[in-house]
Amino acid sequence: MSNGMGLGGPAVESAIEAHGLGKRYRRGWALKDCSFRLPTGRICGLVGPNGAGKTTLLGIAANLLEPTEGTLRVFGAAPESAEANRRGAFLAQEKPLFRRFTVEETLRMGRELNPGWDQKAAEDIVRAGNVPLGAKIGTLSGGQRTRVAFALAFGKRPDLLLLDEPMSDLDPLVRHELMGTLMAEAAEHGTTVLMSSHMLTELENVCDYLVVIAAGGLRLAGEVDELLAAHTLLTGAKAGEGLPRDITRHTVVESRVSGRQVNALVRPDGPIDGAWQTDTPNLEELLLAYLRVPDAPPLISPSAQVTDRAGKAVAA
């Protein structure tokens, strides 16, 4: 699959590299055999159904969890190392803050605990939302609190920002504003962002990279453009029983038959023959197809592949 695209090894530094990563809880494997890399400077969406292992993956990268097997590296360093700790910032889904601290004290905590703290950047983010610096965190609205949590994460000046469902509990206006802030900060500082979300429309236009996990396993990883271009939506009429050979000779991700009409999302393994209407799927269509069919064959684009010790590409 997708051969002919990779030109030797990865040229850009990896922000994250996972090798055979797995995490087992008492109730079973939350994440299994995950191998991928996220090059620096990307804004990457981490997508999957609830319980797919998104939070587990982020938790391992943020040094909150230890993997059961395999390794994960943040800028080449172990997550528990001081370097990874300093270069990464993590924003948990519930955005925990000290409720009795004022906003100012919360920012002071960032200043006291982080060597590269950028007070101005943090204050600007807080001010942009008209959050009073003297207010206690406990008295703020959900959106304001999220903004303070964002300010704390950005003030750390991370090279890698790990966000777990960052916008889930915000109204559309605040969500748009904060996403704008996130994009602007990433633009200015070249921050790599790994952001989990199950709002697919939210990711469109925001992410240029994608990691999809379902049922604990990796389904898709790579450049959004490459992933989209590697897929084709086919629409047409079918003649006999079952799927036409024109379709099955390609890698079929998902197919639907309604009456005589056939809709299929395929990864073409050659030119498309027959009278089919072809379209490039949009991001939402692609993601929905993979989420609906968790056992679809995974696709890891060359830039997202990791090399094992022998230097050979490891495909999932």
Binding site: G180, M183, A186, A187, N205
Partner: peptide, 12 residues
């Protein structure tokens, strides 16, 4: 950066 801020799109 300005476009990212106002439209919430990826800078790339």
């Amino acid at each position: 950066k300005e476009v990212s801020q106002t439209c919430a799109v990826n800078p790339n």
